[in-house]
Write a protein that binds this DNA or RNA. Structure first.
Lengths: 242, 242
DNA sequence: ACCTGAACACCGTTCAAGT
DNA sequence: ACCTGAACACCGTTCAAGT
């Protein structure tokens, strides 16, 4: 009942959760500190889960004091979000590469390549992924998720537009549903702690699912149509995109 | 530093989270209390989200003291789980009804009916669903989710076995993947706060997805085969199942 | 049989004091 | 420019005391 009214207000309307470090490290020792904090976060996350993750524990594991942690992240959520963002960026980058590499391929080929790219990127850090999703419930996390989704779906849409001999009446929706289905399925499967046999089966079936959905969602346009082959996509794609 | 060691241990290894009320209400006033608490939980959940849900707030909203709340639920998670379970049971029941009603139909018809049943059940309490999923991260929540998944997939498998003229080489996996895809997609869509237009599009596309996947995952057996028509499924189904 | 609410421990966050 | 850690407020949970 001393510092009451102000601090009370502050706790009811807490500071906006920022994703960026509140302070940008300028000296090399602080760059190292930030790196240590992020790494410690992942470790604690994997060992104890979000439920038991405390800022003190993270700081301790990183070998710094809590105060230091709060110098770079305005709050616990911001810390988790930073780590989440890095994880998702990894996936997004893998997808962009796969999309670029598949330009001009057949729809079936695209579906296959891209689906496997996503699943394998996800599986490469499966446990981390699960732990992070559990931390991704706040409104701010949605902003990150939306951004990454946008980045990935854009890459997919651009790729599908280069598919020879077909037209998608509503590429945006098709892509969004298809991507969401794959991402959502993987999330459920990983969260449920599925056996590796089930994961393998899911991997197989999701490829079929993507193929089936994409081939159903497009219209074949006849081969003589001027829409295709303004130049030879299959060849330029094979050589021109990394 | 007075009650130290014991209470310290207790907080490091907290009591198992139970889903059931720790005490079963026997007098009518307490039955009413439990009802009020559950209802208050949903209200607070919808108004403030899990992040801001406190046991005190729930108790206050329910018109009881915190102590009373803890008489029926061993901890906050147990309370959330109880509400989650009721929500999911509603979905599961809807699915069981849809599966029973579709026995003996064509695979396409089954896919359509069952997919729409799920989506519409989910949409009927969409906001509650999102709020609850955010609360469903603890290990105990997984037990509930697994149970419900089992219940739903069993119903689906039994239904698919009655599809005339086809055989599924691995029904279990097919069903699990297909169901997970639909559930996961809806979860992502709802959590992302999608527009009703996108929800409608997703609804449409998911039906196609389910049809596509199920028809791809089965083998047609020829009509003369003795596998089908040990009796006429189509007719018995129409009359015999509610 | 059921309810109450002050009291305790833990955790997120801050800030005055250090190098 | 960066770090420290005691101090504060809030929240989950308990338990002695009530009806």
């Amino acid at each position: 009942m001393k510092k009451t009214s102000v601090s009370r207000l502050r706790s009811v309307f807490p500071a906006r959760t920022l994703v960026k470090p509140r302070k940008t490290p300028v000296q090399s020792r602080s760059t190292e500190t930030v790196r240590a904090i992020k790494q410690a976060t992942i470790q604690v996350l994997l060992e104890t889960g979000v439920g038991r993750l405390t800022t003190t524990r993270v700081a301790q594991r990183a070998g710094v004091s809590v105060g230091t942690l709060y110098q770079y992240y305005p709050n616990k959520n911001a810390l988790l979000h930073a780590v989440l963002k890095e994880h998702l960026s990894f996936i997004a980058a893998a997808m962009e590469r796969a999309c670029a590499a598949s330009r001009g391929s057949s729809v079936e080929q695209m579906a296959r390549t891209v689906t496997l790219a996503f699943i394998d990127a996800k599986l490469r850090s499966a446990r981390e992924s699960v732990a992070l999703y559990a931390a991704a419930q706040s409104g701010d996390a949605q902003t990150i998720l939306t951004g990454v989704r946008k980045r990935i779906t854009t890459a997919l849409v651009e790729m599908l537009k280069t598919a020879p001999g077909v037209r998608f009446p509503d590429v945006e929706t098709t892509v969004l549903v298809c991507y969401t289905a794959i991402a959502g399925t993987m999330r459920e499967v990983l969260e449920a702690g599925a056996s590796s046999a089930l994961v393998a089966a899911t991997r197989r079936e999701l490829v079929l699912l993507a193929e089936g959905h994409l081939t159903k969602a497009c219209r074949v346009i006849d081969t003589a149509n001027q829409q295709i082959r303004k130049d030879n996509w299959l060849q330029t794609a094979a050589g021109g995109y990394s």
